[in-house]
Simulated assay, not measured.
Amino acid sequence: MNPIIRNILAVIAGWLGGSITNMGLVQIGHIVFPIEGIDINDMQVLAEAMANYFEIYHFIFPFLAHALGTMAGAVIAGLIAASHKMTFSFVIGGLFLLGGIMVNYMLAAPIWFAILDILVAYMPMAWIGWEIANKIQKSR
């Protein structure tokens, strides 16, 4: 396969796999820690609930979703990319970081969560994802 096409597919597959992981964990979080009477698909309602009803444990699964979604996407991109595997893992981290910044802004997340999320859940997890992909490649 053409290396350029393979690298493009690495980004698409990494983004898609990471997004599926992210959304799956968010949905599991709402099962584990349900918020009665809140439509989690309505951003305005969710923002109001975050400000008024959320306890610290309600932020566990969103953080895990962001971190593990980024890591899964980075692993996938690192495994598929034809060249510059680390770069493509970090591209996934950057894409998820931009999304995380937007969501933290739109939902007016508590400052402690926004800082933790932005500093830990994206670029460090992209690096860990690349490390995992690198180890898998070396063991083959």
Rank of each mutant, 00 (worst) to 15 (best):
L68P: 02
L107W: 04
W112I: 15
L79Q: 02
I80S: 07
A81Q: 01
A13I: 12
M43H: 11
G24F: 08
E55D: 12
A109S: 12
N2P: 09
Y122H: 10
T21L: 07
G29Q: 10
L79R: 00
L68N: 02
V32T: 06
I128C: 04
K135G: 07
A47R: 13
V45S: 14
I115W: 11
A121I: 07
T21A: 12
G93T: 09
A82N: 10
E36A: 15
L64I: 13
M123Y: 08
F63H: 07
L9H: 12
M86A: 13
G99Q: 10
A108H: 15
I111H: 06
F33L: 07
S139C: 05
N41A: 15
M106K: 13
W112R: 13
K135Y: 12
A10S: 14
G69N: 02
F88C: 07
M106Y: 14
M86Y: 10
I5A: 15
A121E: 01
I20D: 03
L79K: 01
M50T: 04
A74E: 03
M102G: 12
G73T: 03
A47S: 15
G24H: 11
G94M: 08
P110K: 13
W15D: 01
I80N: 02
M102T: 13
N22F: 15
F54E: 00
M50P: 00
N41V: 15
I5L: 15
E55H: 09
F88Y: 15
M102S: 13
S19A: 14
K138V: 05
W127C: 05
V103S: 09
Y122R: 02
L46H: 04
Q44D: 15
V103M: 14
M125R: 08
I60C: 05
G17S: 10
E131T: 09
A51F: 00
I128S: 02
E131R: 12
P62D: 02
T70H: 02
I28E: 08
G129F: 05
F113T: 03
